[in-house]
Write a protein that binds this DNA or RNA. Structure first.
Lengths: 154, 154
DNA sequence: GCAACATAGTTTCACTTGCAACTATTATCA
DNA sequence: TGATAATAGTTGCAAGTGAAACTATGTTGC
């Protein structure tokens, strides 16, 4: 005989209120939509775009520094860099005093792509947050900060 | 102040304030941590756990209904179901009047696993949100609702 | 009644991914 | 100095992924 199920709120998990689940659905939806546009328009994967985004802001980082700044792992960065080199969106220059690492830079072509994507990304973000008041947006930032800090700490 | 001066970073994208990026990092961190605990303890992947979670709450859903409820795609569900059948965490029963679909249920063994994981998941969620006041938690729910609705609509 | 279409679920294929092992180089220190 | 450890980045492998094709079944319209 199957035992009676426990009352909701105790033995059941209400998936649609479960934070990890909600974050995952939201994140996949948001990232998926954006990715579609630049995958098709520019043949860029998400990891590639992340690397470009961070190099657009911090030219000359090494792959290891990109890894730190993006929360990607080093394999993912290595492969994204390889593809971006092949498609000539980035180039490498020697690091003085360390022949293992190389500085990474957007090429002119890479910067052109970057300059096209940035407004698209901004625009998309604005549309997603269009229903939020300024106060809510500030609150969102704060909450995301808190949650991220807590999650990393555990 | 000189009004014609452009705000800093207009043509730049500040990745660490870019919503899709922040959501992705947070979601991956949160889901990754939880996954670690049940992957090791129960040999369960994230998609498998999702299917179990939704069946724990809504016994008898078909694979297509699981797909709807979890925002997973049907291939992912199909594979998770296949693995869960093999490990005898779920079982299938005929749908009257439709021989294509089958109702899915947790087995007793499946429910036992579910009953063990639910408190772990809850506990983890509570620790992630421990720093939030009740008001902030309510606000978080509201913001996630709004963002999800907006993202889906676009 | 049956051709055309729709749906449930599975499989195939061509990728992508994450882990661990690997090469090459640099740092540490007895 | 030379042994050992640490670091930058790459690669091999096993597993996972999504898109599209596929099988089987069910529905619709003429």
């Amino acid at each position: 005989m199957r035992p009676e199920r426990k009352p909701a709120g105790e033995g059941l998990l209400v998936l649609e209120h479960f934070l990890p689940y909600r974050l995952s659905v939201l994140s996949n939806t948001v990232s998926g939509r954006i990715a579609k546009s630049y995958e098709q328009q520019f043949q860029l994967t998400i990891p590639e775009w992340r690397v470009m985004a961070v190099l657009g802001r911090f030219p000359g980082l090494t792959a290891a520094e990109v890894t730190e700044r993006t929360a990607m792992d080093k394999v993912q960065v290595s492969r994204a860099v390889a593809r971006l080199k092949k498609t000539e969106r980035i180039e490498q220059r020697a690091v003085e005093g360390d022949r293992r690492a190389r500085h990474l830079f957007l090429t002119d072509a890479g910067r052109a792509v970057y300059d096209e994507i940035v407004p698209l990304a901004r625009d998309y973000e604005q549309r997603v947050t269009a229903d939020l008041s300024a106060a809510e947006r500030a609150q969102l930032e704060r909450l995301l900060d808190k949650l991220t800090a807590a999650a990393v700490k555990l």
